[in-house]
Design a protein around this nucleic acid. Sequence first.
DNA 1: CGGGATCCAAAAGGATACTG
DNA 2: CAGTATCCTTTTGGATCCCG
Lengths: 130, 130
Amino acid sequence: MSQGNTGVTDEAIHDVACPIREVIDRVGGKWSVQIILATAQGPVRFTDLERRIEGISRRMLTLTLRNLERDGLIVRKVYATVPPKVEYTGTEMSRELHDPLERLADWARRNRGNISAARAEYDQANSRDD
Amino acid sequence: MSQGNTGVTDEAIHDVACPIREVIDRVGGKWSVQIILATAQGPVRFTDLERRIEGISRRMLTLTLRNLERDGLIVRKVYATVPPKVEYTGTEMSRELHDPLERLADWARRNRGNISAARAEYDQANSRDD
DNA sequence: CGGGATCCAAAAGGATACTG
DNA sequence: CAGTATCCTTTTGGATCCCG
């Protein structure tokens, strides 16, 4: 190796980055995480979700639920009653996501200050010149 | 509490989901993670990144680098030489992201099979009817 | 109640030509 | 070499109305 620190890098990057992409592609949507958390401890009805997740539109709730169901992260149970009743429940796989997500949340809480400071600095530095 | 399992839920969801959103908003882009990983162990030049991150366009490389720099996740160092030379290096804050990200990657690797199985099943179940 | 169908706005991303 | 500028396509998300 004559060219400095180009060792593990390229392959290792792909091996880590690629699975991460897969996760983000499924839970990176604007509402996915909230739904995963909301359905974690038991069956929740459609309308309950709509009320509990502030700002979500009917369309996005349906769409996100469908995608999560397709990926096996939640289970949809329909009761043939009238009026209709549908319950959504997070799966085990989905619950196993909580720890990893909590780590991310930790990082975010620890570095909130850092990030907004960095931003302020950057934005100020790039308003003078240009 | 007379109405069943509505305990921690709503506030707790927000307290966890909100920081997670913050992280995803910064590293959820299509190329962010790869750049974070690639710049982790030392200075990398623009063209090196362009070569090592397969499929990235000049535009997106620049854009993503700017955003990461703005958030304090990488540092940009310009050498006033000719031809120009610019190096990008991940910051400590950025390196602290690796562990959380690795957990996510673990989850993805463990559940890859589960997910594609769930998809296959779902897609098949929804091709018959409709 | 729990959606599906439709239409629209905004954001993200890609291709590529040009430049200090 | 390391970008910027411009144009275009795709994706994502929101607003509604309708329907069993």
